[in-house]
């Protein structure tokens, strides 16, 4: 795979405006995914309604804690991400770097340590973690996965170790990924459960 798809989103300066723009991008992404319910354009009322739904509360809390972390306030950042953990049951490390457009439809059991580009989708009980049996607190640089833009991590799936996932990759349900994936790859695990009738 070429090095160009390995480029992940990396922001050098995290400001409070980055938090706000990130939350707006998360709302837009959530609205895009739940377009089955939407009628017409994204009105202010729907926007506010999204803002108080668990996906946006969770990702917004993560963005605030990452902002605190990047300002050097490690203890408040960890307290905030721990509050996120207790309330939403999603373990998004305050040191993780996730681009705008994060979408977590069901926050329970989601674990994220690492770096990801924009438009990341984390489904129920997915885990993106480092390889070592390591309970370190802050650093995500070494040993953690790097995800490109537009990656979807499926239900019960695990991405583990210092791997690189290309742009637009799809990791299917209950799969374990411990190798690099090229761009637009799809990993599907499972057995043939149903056959088409003759």
């Amino acid at each position: 795979m070429s090095e160009s798809v390995l480029l992940t989103w990396r922001s050098d300066r995290i400001t409070i405006g980055w938090v706000w723009r990130g939350i707006q991008a998360d709302i837009a992404q959530t609205a895009r995914y739940s377009s089955a319910f939407s009628i017409g354009r994204l009105s202010l009322m729907r926007r506010v309604s999204f803002m108080f739904s668990p996906p946006i509360l969770c990702s917004g809390t993560y963005r605030l804690s990452h902002w605190l972390y990047r300002r050097g306030l490690t203890l408040p950042a960890r307290c905030l991400s721990w509050l996120n953990f207790v309330v939403h049951r999603a373990d998004l490390s305050c040191a993780a770097e996730i681009g705008p457009g994060l979408y977590i439809p069901h926050t329970s059991g989601v674990i994220f340590r690492g770096r990801a580009g924009s438009n990341l989708t984390l489904l129920f009980r997915s885990a993106v973690v480092d390889d070592r049996i390591n309970v370190h607190l802050e650093r995500v640089e070494r040993g953690c996965p790097r995800l490109g833009n537009g990656v979807t991590v499926g239900v019960f799936s695990v991405i583990k170790g210092a791997v690189t996932i290309g742009d637009g990759a799809f990791v299917g349900a209950s799969s374990t990924v411990r190798t690099d994936l090229p761009a637009n790859a799809a990993v599907i695990v499972g057995h043939l459960l149903a056959r088409r009738p003759n």
């Binding site: 373990d91 309970v135 370190h136 607190l137």
Partner: peptide
């Protein structure tokens, strides 16, 4: 736990770790 936390782990914040 401390042996696996490595050098970069912040010992003062151990009580905040769900693992502990």
């Amino acid at each position: 736990l401390e042996a696996h936390s490595g050098a970069e782990g912040n010992r003062r914040l151990m009580w905040l770790q769900p693992s502990y």
